[in-house]
Simulated scan of single mutants.
Amino acid sequence: MLVHPQLNPIALDLGILQVHWYGLTYLAAFGLFHFLATRRIRQAPFVAGGWQPRDVEDLLFFGVVGVILGGRLGYVLFYKPMHYLQNPLEVLAVWKGGMAFHGGLLGVLVAMALFAHLRGRRFFEVTDLIAPCVPTGLAMGRVGNFINGELWGRAADASLPWAMVFPQSGSDLPRHPSQVYQFLLEGLSLFVILWCYGRSRGAHHRADGAVVWGRVSGLFMIGYGAFRFIAEYFREPDSFLGLLTFNLSMGQWLCVPMIAAGALIWASAGRRAA
């Protein structure tokens, strides 16, 4: 069995200032988004839409605000509503941890809707642009989870070559390194799928040649929801929630409407020709 190396979560300690690895993974995520999005706008039909590098910088600003606010509020509302209702000031204590992807997604969608409104662009044009650029950021987040030794997996057979003991879990049980699974699934695999699909003509054009928006966004929601649903079978459920109805975790239940919404968006995209 492997044993988690228990890396120091602090990458750089300057006394009055501590730089955490998790914070650095967030910076890497935002840097990768900027790198990929500036290349995405060189693809048709974004060139025809007049997208410029300055637009990407503004998108990144809106997205960062949406991720932080949405991720925090999502965690508060989806996972510990009663705790924060009794301790409302702790909602602001982000340094104690507590971010939810599904909340971050909702926050980003609101931010993108505001950006689209202010710039006079279609909402799904904006989300189709950013969708293939998001999974690498998710992958960086899972790297941070692994370094911190958090969000470990469920118990695994000791004969599994990559089974790992996470001392942070308080036991010597071999576990699935679910952070690595999510890195590979909702990070790298989803990126490859969306980037390749986003470059294809069928992603943005109907058979009659009309430009359509929403297919890449819909595929992102389907792909992330499906990959996260699978990964949750190997990830230890939150101790304060456990498994819910039908032995599904909260993360899995939040993926169900996401997959359904993604399928609806993708299927109806052809009827929303620009």
Rank of each mutant, 00 (worst) to 15 (best):
D55W: 08
L60K: 10
V192M: 11
R42Y: 15
Q86F: 11
Y22R: 03
H4T: 05
S239E: 05
L184F: 05
T25A: 12
F78Y: 12
T136K: 07
Y233C: 12
M140S: 09
L190R: 02
P135N: 10
Q18N: 15
Q6I: 12
G104L: 04
L27W: 10
V134F: 01
L129S: 00
F191E: 00
Q18P: 14
L173Q: 11
K96T: 08
W51Q: 07
V211A: 04
R54P: 05
A113T: 14
F124E: 04
N247T: 15
S268K: 14
G209A: 13
I16T: 08
L27C: 15
M221I: 13
K80D: 04
A269T: 14
I16D: 11
F191N: 01
F146D: 00
G120H: 06
L254M: 13
A203D: 15
A207K: 06
R235P: 00
L219W: 02
L194F: 07
Y79L: 14
S169D: 10
A37I: 06
L105P: 02
G74C: 04
V180F: 04
A116W: 03
N8I: 08
D13T: 11
E232L: 03
A139F: 05
P53Y: 11
A260W: 05
G153F: 11
Y26T: 11
Q182L: 01
L185P: 00
P177H: 15
E232I: 06
F30P: 03
R39N: 09
G103M: 09
G187F: 01
P174W: 00
G187W: 00
L254R: 02
Y84N: 13
L17P: 04
L118C: 12
G49M: 15
I10S: 11
G98Q: 09
V165W: 03
G223S: 13
R121G: 15
L118E: 11
P132H: 13
G63Y: 03
P53T: 11
T127I: 12
S239R: 08
Y224V: 00
W253S: 09
Y75L: 12
V47Y: 12
R121I: 13
